[in-house]
Every structure is written in C-alpha cells, then in structure tokens.
Design a protein around this nucleic acid. Structure first.
Lengths: 255, 255
DNA sequence: AAGTGGTCTAGACCACGTT
DNA sequence: ACGTGGTCTAGACCACTTT
C-alpha cells in the first residue's frame, strides 16, 4: 500500500514525498521512458491526498523535465532524445563532398533529416552584424533550417553570410551542392583559417520551444560560430540545440 | 485598474494572462531586477481571482526563471549573476604563478572568492576512473571547491588526480602553491599536451541547486575536462556552472 | 459514456520576517 | 501582531481521448 510511505508529519511536504516516490520509480526504470504514470485519481486514492496535492507532485517532476501530461490520455515519462556528439574536429573531417552535419550524423550512426525553413535575403541581426563587420542595417543571405534525429527536432540553426560572398551563388539556394556552403566558399578561393565558437545555456524562448517541440523546463545550448577564411569572417551560424540531445567536445592544445 | 486587462472568456487561461502582464512589467523594467512583485493578496484583489490562481501565475514565472519567492518577505524579480567569459586559451595564459581561475577572473575584472569544500583521498567516480585509466575501486586525491563571483556562487568543481601523482605533495593540500596544481605537476616533470573538454547542459540536481543556491528552473553547464600531460591523463576536473553566469569561448583551427 | 487532464474557487492552518 | 509566502482540502466545471 503506497500510502504507508507517506508521512504527513514529516518535514518534507506531502507533495514532495509523492514526487520523490515517483521519481524513484522513473530512475529505477520501474516506470520506463514513454511509460504511463498512475493517473491523478489513482494518486488521490493511493496516497489519500487531494487532487491539488497529487497534481503538485506531478508538477515537480514536470519542472525537473522527467514527465509530461497528455490531455485526456494521462501522464508519461519523457523519452530522452538520441544524443549527438559534436567533436571539435567536425570541420576538419568535412571531406568527400559532405557537409559537416552529414559527416557528424554518420559518425554517430543516426537517422537524420533537415527541414529548410528559409533561405534568402534578409536583415542581419545586431550580434551577427558586429561579428561579420557589417553595418547594422546591412542585408545578408540567411539560411535557416531545422535538424531532426530519428524524427525528433534537436537543432535550429541560422546562418548569416555577407551578400558579396553568397548572393547569386549556390550558397543562396536551398541545395548548395556537394560539401555544403563551405565548399562553395572554397570554390571562390577562400581558405578557411578557424572557427570561433561561443557557447551558452539557457531556457528557451517560447518560439524556440515551439520549433524544437521542447516541453517546459528543458534547457537549450546556444552556440554561435564565426567562420573565418582568408582573413575575414565569412559566416556567422547561430545554433539553438535541445540540450538533452547534445554533448560538445573540444580538444585544446596546451601550448 | 489591472483587472480590466483580464478576460475570463479568453482562450488563454486567467493565470497565463496574469503571468503575461507581470512578465511584461519585468521585461519593460517597470519591475527591475531585485524589485518586489505585488503580493499574492494584492493580485487576488486586483485581478479578482482566487489565491491558487494568483500563485499559479507566479509559478509560471518561476519556471521561466524570472522570479523567486522569499518566505515571509514577498516575490522578487531575479537578479542576473555577473557573466564570466571562459576563453579556450585560459590555460595557455596560465602564467606568472597564477592558477587559471585567477587569471581568468582578473581578465574579467571581477571580485571573486573560492570556498574549499573538501581536499583529500576518496573513491574515484566511474566516469573519472575511465578517463584516468584507473580501476573502478581506485582511490584518488579529490579537490572539491566552490567559486563565487561578487558574492554569488557560480561554479562547483571537483578534481580527481591519481594518487601516484598527488599523494603526499602540495596537490593534496588546500593550498597547492603558486600556479596551482598544474604548476606542481610541471615541477614533477610533466609536460602538458592538451585539455579535452566535454560540455553538456541540463537541469541541476537538488544537491547542485543547493550548493550553487540556484532557484528552480535554472540550467547548469556541465564541463568535464581531462588534462593530458606527458602522454597520460593526469587530472579529471568535473565542473558544474550556473549557466546564466558563463559564456564559453573556443577557437578551432580549420586544419 | 467513462476516464483523463486543465482550470478555478473558497477556505483553512502553518511558518517565516518585520515591526 | 501583522503581513508575507507554503501547504493542503473538497469541490466544481470544462476539454480531450478512448471505448
């Protein structure tokens, strides 16, 4: 009888005790990913609490990112997205006419897909303008796409490329050809020198949560990469990733 | 009269409408960081809702990381912690007898402090054992400390160093001497080759939230660094950071 | 129709902080 | 003593999903 494990006189509030019990069952896999939790009414009956208290216990687990509710169906343990490992040599490995993302996903043996959301001209945002050395009101080629792994959206990326490099070239087209946009820049004679990456983590905006179909209480990794070739910044790529789906690797030489 | 802005017949629930209004005041700085929100009872009066609904509105803002409650005092807009920028050359800059953290904080012109939480022998955790090439039941020297910037805890770091390197040396002492533990390893003849870093972001555990005094719904950056010197891993450093307090920089050569 | 979650109310008692 | 947030109850009505 589960209610025997609840101590109303405890310092720990009843809703937290119920959350602890459910969390334990999730961690022990007694409730596996995708599995259904007891309904609110059965929690009310089992633990002899009000419905508000039962829901409060569940909301603790929502905040921890462990469970989600489906209206009319029930409460379920969240499935973890497949993890993608991004190595710092992912651009060095860009070979054989394949884009970095493709190389990376093949290295991880994952089924993947790309949604093209927008490709064309647009105004450059302030941060990217500064990094590209452009005026605040400049136009650039914008490439916005969403990456999916095994059907789940995991990454939302926007590239900004100066018009003098991209306009009228395959870089401004949905299909930029073998090797991706970096290969097209190399075709133009650009020699890549380095990629500067800036990483933060935060909670997603409402729009980001919608695009990545993130439940509440799941953070994102935000990576802004500036590609530098032949002495000038040639691309700023702003990437928002479902944090649960990524591990980033960097190897730094000591000297 | 604020209640005029609430439409009970709207598709958007009452508690979300109240949360929207309060969020707007926070974003517009009408309610500045550190400022006090209206009390629950005044929300009840102003918007003519029950206390449960008022609290639900506030809990939305808690989940978004915008506000916190202080028992007996009221609801307050969260202060953002000072941001610390971590460059990928932070170890290369380790010079003049100063530890990396010190160099880094001075470069950022921040007041900082270090709490030493534990220094001594202990069992190596599984992940660190694998990275160090040790048996799962091996003992290591553990250095656990907490870093504060301008009084706020922002980082919680634990280093694991094999006994044959650290035991009986200043590395196993609270004060490891000028230049920190890496300088002591260099004294022993180790030549540093590289630092491998593995970055993830996630919600903190309850313990991590307590140590970093994080409110709920604020993510952490988790960085695991393996230092490699003279052909062997000499330290694994596991760092949990308040994500709001950090920007990580990496510069990757293209070839 | 029955079961599930989503929203909301009116009230109660307790614990913390300030006056 | 008073105002603040923290926890909890018993009930209501609605919307969505499944049978």
């Amino acid at each position: 009888m589960p209610s025997s494990r609840i101590d109303p006189a405890s310092d720990r509030s009843v809703y937290r005790q119920i959350a602890d019990i459910l969390r334990g069952k999730i961690e022990s896999r007694e409730l596996p990913p995708g599995g259904q939790l007891p309904s609110e009414s059965s929690i009310v009956a089992d633990y002899e609490v009000s419905r508000v208290t039962a829901r409060r216990a569940l909301s603790v687990l929502v905040t921890e990112g462990l469970v989600t509710a489906e209206h009319g169906r029930g409460w379920f343990v969240r499935r973890q997205p497949p993890v993608r490992r991004l190595s710092s040599d992912r651009f060095a490995r860009r070979k054989e006419g394949k884009a970095a993302f493709t190389v990376d996903m093949e290295a991880n043996k994952r089924a993947f897909a790309v949604d093209v959301l927008y490709i064309g001209r647009g105004a450059v945002p302030a941060g990217a303008a500064e990094k590209l050395g452009l005026d605040a009101d400049a136009e650039v080629i914008i490439r916005r796409r969403r990456y999916l792994a095994e059907g789940q959206p995991i990454e939302y990326a926007t590239s900004y490329i100066p018009l003098d490099i991209a306009d009228g070239t395959p870089i401004a087209e949905p299909n930029s050809g073998p090797g991706g946009i970096y290969a097209r820049m190399e075709d133009q004679g650009f020699v890549f020198e380095r990629y500067d990456e800036e990483i933060t983590a935060r909670m997603p905006s409402e729009e980001e949560a919608r695009i990545l179909t993130l439940p509440v209480a799941t953070p994102v990794l935000h990576l802004v990469r500036t590609a530098v070739a032949s002495g000038r910044p040639v691309e700023v790529c702003d990437t928002v990733m479902d944090a649960a789906a990524f591990v980033l690797f960097y190897s730094l030489p000591a000297r």
